[in-house]
Design a binder for these strands. Structure first.
Ligand SMILES: [Mn+2]
Ligand SMILES: [Mn+2]
Ligand SMILES: [Zn+2]
Ligand SMILES: [Zn+2]
Lengths: 146, 146
DNA sequence: CAACAAATGAGATGCTTTTGCATTCTGCCA
DNA sequence: TGGCAGAATGCAAAAGCATCTCATTTGTTG
């Protein structure tokens, strides 16, 4: 349960019951190689354009949503309007985001995970998901000057 | 730091550097008495209409945003499109939301708060804010049937 | 390689939130 | 208390993000 995975391929697309099309392959590859790992649909659109792939924004949204349903991709709702996507490598984690430069770092803390379960139990809830995002200034010099 | 506050009034509006207008008074009163405590701008709009106050939706958004800047109100970005607002009574807390009926409960856990600080420190971040929301099914019978 | 279903692109559309502007209201002072 | 300047409001238009429609193109399978 929740194993690792390093490389996504056309097989993953096929296994999701989707046709292996050029847009899907390119989008998956981009997520794979993406510097930051956390990108908006528009980021994907522009990065692909830079790479010479003119794929419609509507298709990007559609594909990302399909990938999400298939469990290949995770969607986050950080502050700032646009949804942010990242490849789902099977290991849950939460995020800490720099509100100055946008840098995103990941973390996983079992203690926090456990406490959430306990809190939910106390309140009679069954946990399906959770979103924890810390916002602050990263160590970057330029981000320090508040 | 972070004291309690039970009743908001025109003074709070004035102290925020805002004129005490009917829309502002009504919106603040509604948040004060609101059943659920967590309402969208449209909720506010409709509830006020029901109460016979026809205040423009644009004004509601403007006022809520101003209240937020003034620290009278907190805005949350739960899943589901609309922003959710609540009166800021000065005591930080996080939320657990039923994805079936929408019920929102609040909790505060010092252990989770502390761990976040530690994690941020490890990563060289200065924490400015955080958002933790647990999603699941509440104890309500109708919400149990997954 | 034909045939058909699935997928794509471009633009329309939907929804939430913000903004521009003419009109109305508040707070303040004479 | 009356009047004024600036602030606030309402309405409609616009903006931002995401989804949908539909004609056309592209995988996939036999
Ligand atoms: Mn991540
Ligand atoms: Mn709350
Ligand atoms: Zn930074
Ligand atoms: Zn419920």
């Amino acid at each position: 349960m929740g194993g690792k995975k390093d490389m996504m391929s056309g097989d993953d697309i096929r296994n999701a019951g989707l046709k292996v099309t050029l847009p899907r392959v390119k989008i998956l590859a981009l997520l794979e190689q993406s510097e930051q790992g956390h990108v908006s649909a528009e980021d994907v659109y522009k990065l692909l354009l830079d790479a010479g792939e003119d794929i419609g924004l509507a298709t990007i949204y559609r594909v990302l949503t399909q990938f999400e349903s298939a469990g290949l991709v995770t969607r986050h709702h950080f502050e700032g309007g646009q949804s942010v996507f990242e490849l789902d490598r099977g290991e849950h984690h939460d995020h800490i985001v720099c509100i100055k430069c946008g840098r995103v770092e990941e973390f996983f803390d079992q203690m926090i995970e456990d406490r959430q379960q306990e809190i939910a139990k106390e309140k009679g809830f069954t946990v399906e998901a959770h979103a924890l995002t810390i916002y602050g200034y990263c160590k970057n010099a330029a981000c320090r000057a508040s």
